[in-house]
């Protein structure tokens, strides 16, 4: 299968690979997928407690090139957004940005799930949501 240039670029030079301290109260961790399905993504965010802005994002992915590219792109999209804004990211944005073919759309869905799971974990650590907007369920 031919990969788009953007998928190849993220595969060859993945952005923000690594791990944040998952015990840090300001870090949210999402782990989605399953080894037997051939895709596992771990996506982490570190949120500035004063501004609610995501200051750092890291990922590690077991999966095909499109899965790696989707999660790499997701970390780029997350940085600088507030947690609320991050919750609005849709898999279709990833599909469009990476020109994913139909058989690879599930990779972008998994990336969206990973973002949501990381936000959920962060909010759970914060206890009760701090603001009204945060009460939107994920």
């Amino acid at each position: 299968m031919a990969y788009s240039d953007k998928v190849l670029d993220h595969y060859n030079s993945p952005r923000n690979v690594g791990s944040l301290d998952k015990k840090d109260p300001h870090v949210g961790t999402g782990l989605v997928g399953a080894p037997e399905c051939g895709d596992v993504m771990k996506l982490q965010i570190r949120v500035n407690p004063d501004t609610g802005v995501i200051e750092d994002a890291k990922f590690k992915t077991f999966g095909c090139g499109s899965a790696i590219a989707s999660s790499s792109l997701a970390t780029e999209m997350l940085k600088g957004r507030t947690v609320d804004e991050a919750g609005q990211i849709k898999n279709t944005q990833i599909v469009n940005e990476l020109s994913l073919p139909p058989v690879k759309i599930h990779c972008s869905v998994l990336a969206e799930d990973a973002i949501k799971a990381a936000i959920e974990d962060y909010r759970a650590k914060q206890g009760a949501p701090a603001g009204g907007a945060l009460q939107q369920s994920v």
């Binding site: 997928g33 895709d39 998994l110």
Partner: peptide, 24 residues
Amino acid sequence: RDLSPLYEMVKEGVDLSKVEWAAH
């Protein structure tokens, strides 16, 4: 493997068969 969350977990001593995966 530097990119693989599974490899990282195994190196941390996690038993992958005991993890509750969200199969999709």
